[in-house]
Write a protein that binds this DNA or RNA. Structure first.
Length: 556
RNA sequence: GCCCUCGUAGCUCAGUGGAUAGAGCAUCCCCCUCCUAAGGGGAGGGUCACACGUUCGAUUCGUGUCGAGGGCGCCA
């Protein structure tokens, strides 16, 4: 429809002597219903070149506008807006479109089936997932769903560090607990992990249990002094814990990548060699440095420490080069904003590889979506601790307390780049304080009406829609027709929260309609038309909730 | 000190180069003999942090100031 109106305006512009091909005609959906279904600022844009009053130009454009069956009325408003009002018939076509497309409604093929990888969560296995990981999980998974809806072939990937200093801390913490050393004992490792879950791992290790994570299976040896055995078991144990957290959060990964594998397969070494070959490295003070300043960093970074080990970003570069080799021309990394500084380094490393390996990784590759911190509130006070984890609120705490749907919704419904206050009381509320239930309730209400009708819902796609002539019906139809555009823009902007906002608006229109209008009326044509409208609404709510990974209940 | 993000109603947050800046909560008033009141309708509440620029038009873009958070490691 936007294309159609653009076309009409283009013709009109040509008619009054303006070269329409030079124009970037923008068609908007006005916020207010009195401004029609679509509006254009074309007359304002032409005011300067034509040296005329925008309203006068709008007048001429409207005179020159070709006739269209889709348009019922065109008006000039404000300082020169041209507002288009759709005919009832053209507005009603959306209902049939939705009911015919069903679950596919709103999906498109913009991604052309190309591969995109979304890496998210990527928590190191040193403890249960916390709220911050939860935000990453919710946002990342919704991004993946959005890209899928926009026609991309999505791979969800989880990367973790199963070696290194943090893992060593985990190992010595487990060993200390195995030996019965309490966390407040002077001999407990200073930087050790003190959460109760360490005790669980210790007990399981001593009991020689077997743990099965999504990507590994390990049986404990029970030999506390064997650090390797403790490490592999503890990592598997915590990976399994994270799997359970993720499962409770309805998130599934396609690929798990281990940092250790980058070493064992020689990918780190070959990356380092290539970086050296690129000429962008130098030795200084027993360390090897990468000239990241050549790629926009504010200082050069150490690659290989004087003790011979690599700094974390070297395997990161190797990992991303591997992603590139695996055919991902598009990669989106969802991370906490505290990892912000790695972006420049990883991209710098990849740019340095370009010359040495004769490849062409684009400058801004990969994409990043960073989320800001989450503060959890309960009873007006900040919640900081969990008994299990010791020092932070776990994702599991939240899911257990407020449910998966509400947790997902609240963590994904805000712009990633603003700080988030998670109000547990609000998330638990079963009133319209709580947008999750508000949206789900709209869906459940429709289900309930359709059930009471007892007719065959699949026949509704064929009914005569002419009885739909009330303003609240027009408003709802317009809302439904926006949905595919919302999916596109949310995908382009990597902004899943806009889906949540849309659903709130859509639910609001439905509740308003529901309250004002009885659907199961005696007049059959009216009844069927209204049922078709709410059935279409039900479908859109369901499709939208699915993008958020939130259930659309039949009953509440 | 430098870099990144944010600053919108009492609170939590949307929004946007354009029309009177929105929603929910909170406050106040109304609506179930009726398909789920987990709902609806209405009232009040704003210097879009501040200043200066760009623009026909700025809450939106740019610069600066102030405030909040994060990052500036041979930690990850």
């Amino acid at each position: 429809m936007k294309a159609h109106i653009t076309d009409l305006l283009g013709h009109a512009a040509t008619h009054i002597g303006v070269d329409a091909t030079q124009l970037n005609i923008i068609i908007d959906r006005p916020k207010s219903a009195e401004h029609g279904d679509f509006s254009s600022n074309l007359a304002m844009l032409l005011a300067k070149p034509l040296r005329q009053n925008p309203r006068a130009i709008a007048e001429q454009l409207i005179q020159a506008l070709p006739h269209s069956d889709y348009i019922a009325k065109v008006e000039i408003a404000g300082s020169g807006f041209i507002n288009f009002f759709l005919s009832a018939q053209s507005q009603q076509t959306i209902i049939g479109d939705i009911l015919k497309a069903g679950d596919m409604f709103g999906r498109n093929n913009l991604g052309k089936g190309e591969n995109v990888q979304v890496e998210f969560v990527s928590a190191n296995p040193t403890g249960p997932l916390h709220v911050g990981h939860g935000r990453g999980a919710a946002v990342g998974d919704c991004l993946a769903r959005l890209l899928d809806a926009n026609g991309w072939n999505v791979t969800r990937e989880f990367y973790y560090n199963d070696a290194g200093a943090q893992i060593e801390n985990l190992v010595i913490s487990v060993q200390a607990r195995c030996k019965g050393i309490a966390t407040d004992d002077a001999s407990f490792p200073e930087n050790g992990y003190r959460g109760d879950y360490i005790v669980d791992i210790s007990n399981a290790f001593l009991a020689k249990q077997t743990v099965t994570a999504d990507d590994m299976q390990v049986t404990a040896s029970g030999n506390v002094d064997d650090a390797d055995a403790v490490r592999t078991f503890a990592v598997a144990y915590l990976r399994h814990e994270q799997d359970l957290d993720l499962k409770a959060f309805q998130i599934k990964f396609d690929v798990f990548s281990l940092e250790s594998a980058l070493y064992s397969t020689g990918k780190v070494e070959s990356t380092v060699k290539a970086l050296i070959a690129s000429g962008k490295t130098y030795e200084e003070g027993d360390a090897l440095w990468l000239k990241t300043t050549d790629f926009g960093d504010d200082k050069d970074r150490v690659m290989r420490k004087s003790d011979g080990g690599y700094t974390y970003f070297v395997p990161d570069v190797a990992y991303h080069y591997d992603k590139w080799n695996r055919g991902f021309k598009r990669v989106i990394n969802e991370q906490g904003a505290d990892h912000h500084s790695t972006i420049t380094r990883v991209r710098a490393g990849l740019q340095a590889l370009n010359a040495a390996l004769n490849i062409s990784i684009p400058q801004g590759w990969p994409d990043y979506v960073l989320h800001q911190m989450v503060t959890v509130m309960r009873g007006g006070e900040e919640v900081k601790l969990s008994k299990r984890a010791g020092s932070y609120v776990t994702l599991r705490d939240l899911i257990d307390e407020v449910g998966c749907d509400a947790t997902r919704y609240f963590l994904a419904a805000r712009r990633a780049d603003s700080q988030l206050i998670f109000d547990i009381d609000l998330a638990r509320a079963q009133t319209n304080d709580n947008p999750v239930y508000y949206i789900q309730y709209a869906h459940a209400r429709i289900c309930s009406v359709l059930n009471q009708w007892e007719g065959d819902v699949t026949t509704l796609k064929m009914v005569d829609l002419n009885p739909l002539n009330m303003p609240n019906e027009a408003k709802l139809m317009q809302r439904l027709s926006e949905y595919p555009e919302v999916v596109v823009s949310a995908g382009e902007d990597l902004a899943p929260h806009t889906i949540a906002n849309y659903l709130k608006e859509c639910a609001s229109d439905l509740h308003s309609y529901y309250n004002d209008t009885k659907f199961l009326v005696d007049d059959v044509p009216t009844k069927l038309a209204r049922l078709a409208l709410i059935a279409a609404t039900q479908q859109v709510l369901k499709n939208g909730l699915d993008l958020l990974g939130v259930n659309a209940p039949q009953k509440m």
